[in-house]
Write a protein that binds this DNA or RNA. Structure first.
Lengths: 236, 236
DNA sequence: ATTTTTGTTAACCATTTGGTTAAACTATAT
DNA sequence: ATATAGTTTAACCAAATGGTTAACAAAAAT
């Protein structure tokens, strides 16, 4: 008889609670008592498992951020073609953020608080991202004439911006564009699927002419149907 | 004999100090003592001028955010053509952020902390942004065939992402792309100037073919010269 | 069965922090 | 000169908060 129900595991409960509280209130705004309450246990127990606030934060934060960021390297340094690479990157990141909606905020927050410390924690001394491979590929495609000449800086900026920002600015976007959570998810899924159009046309891809698909389905189409949804259009 | 040197104005010094401290440490992380120290005055004086922390924050924050956000409305609702509108928007925002580098972070932070409260403070009850005009213009251009069909949602998302995100993620970008502050500014100026290419080609602008300019100057060109700067390229 | 280790709690403590007070100082008006 | 109003400060206070302790309970080891 195996005890499947192990949800009274204090340590895990604390971690989950800490994640939630740190994420919503930030490191400075989070209270140890909040975390204890959220986990439904005594405050001292939080200290029992994770010495102090800094340690707890470190555990929570690093666990999340370290699996989030270093993916860049492996994707960008892989041997697949440029376009596939970009597609992989976008898909991977949007998926990750769909599952952990708090993560981009969390990361940006810490990044802003102490950039150097942050970078060190994430990448360590020697493990800094090396976009060399990617830049070479861009340059190669540029020379081949497949894509128009673009500064890799801008291409990268655009790529990161269009992938990450919607999640960072989610509260603003959902509110001002009148999107509910389901619609937001759908919109992001569209971006994932259409990342080729999104990013390559953006960078001046000469495949442009071949592209007969409307960019991101037709306008106003949220629910997958290829027609206008006037309610949303109006209120937008 | 006029006393030009009025830099010992306590109230202004407090405001400037508060802006700095709130921005770097966030509302929860900011200490009244920090602000007093930064302003070089006694802590009680901060309370003398701005009752309590909340009030001070409100003054600082609203002053900044209210001049930052409502510009969207006036630009997007103006009568100028779509492409000009986009150009205005990008230029206006990048300028604003160049001058107030802390602002985007500040805004995103509050936005995340309490979206509803935030939106209310910025736009009030009835002053919500109405992208109607912009959407109509997009739709018109789509129908005219000037730009390919694109969901206004995505066009707007892309526009906002590519304009705002680089400033939000500035610490990460400057560090990972090995840009110093001057270079970052230059890159953003490039984005401002080339917003047409950036955003319209991105949205499938059929003017594409007419565009013989390289997108964002040539690759690796940071210092305005149209040649490679190997140092940066290598280290990138 | 009992000792030991691990997990959990209520009560407590020290420090930090937002905020107050009363006194002093400054400039201006009378 | 002196009163007055505005400005600034050191000292203080109460609440909040991170962290500790000692006692207790549960589980594991002996």
């Amino acid at each position: 008889m195996v005890k499947i129900k192990k949800d009274h595991n204090a340590e895990e409960r604390i971690l989950a609670a800490a994640k939630k509280v740190f994420t919503t209130k930030g490191m400075a705004g989070a209270r140890m008592q909040d975390i204890a309450d959220e986990a439904g246990i005594n405050k001292a127990l939080v200290h029992y498992y994770f010495r102090d606030k800094d340690k707890l934060f470190e555990v929570v934060f690093l666990a999340e951020a370290q699996k989030f960021f270093p993916k860049i390297n492996s994707i960008f340094n892989s041997e697949v073609p440029l376009f596939e690479k970009i597609e992989n990157f976008v898909a991977e990141y949007i998926d990750e953020m769909q599952e952990n909606p708090y993560l981009p905020w969390f990361v940006m927050n810490e990044l802003h608080r102490d950039p150097d410390q942050f970078m060190y924690k994430i990448w360590g001394e020697k493990n800094l991202p090396k976009p060399q491979k990617l830049l070479e590929q861009i340059e190669k495609e540029v020379k081949k004439g497949t894509i128009k000449r673009i500064s890799p800086i801008h291409l990268l900026m655009n790529l990161l911006s269009m992938t990450i920002f919607p999640f960072v600015a989610r509260p603003m976007l959902t509110r001002n564009l009148r999107l509910n959570e389901t619609q937001f998810k759908e919109v992001m899924d569209q971006r994932k699927k259409k990342s080729q159009n999104l990013f390559l046309i953006q960078s001046g891809n000469s495949f442009y002419e071949k592209n007969t698909d409307p960019l991101f389905f037709s306008a106003f189409s949220f629910d997958g149907a290829d027609r206008a949804t006037p309610g949303i259009t109006k209120s937008l």
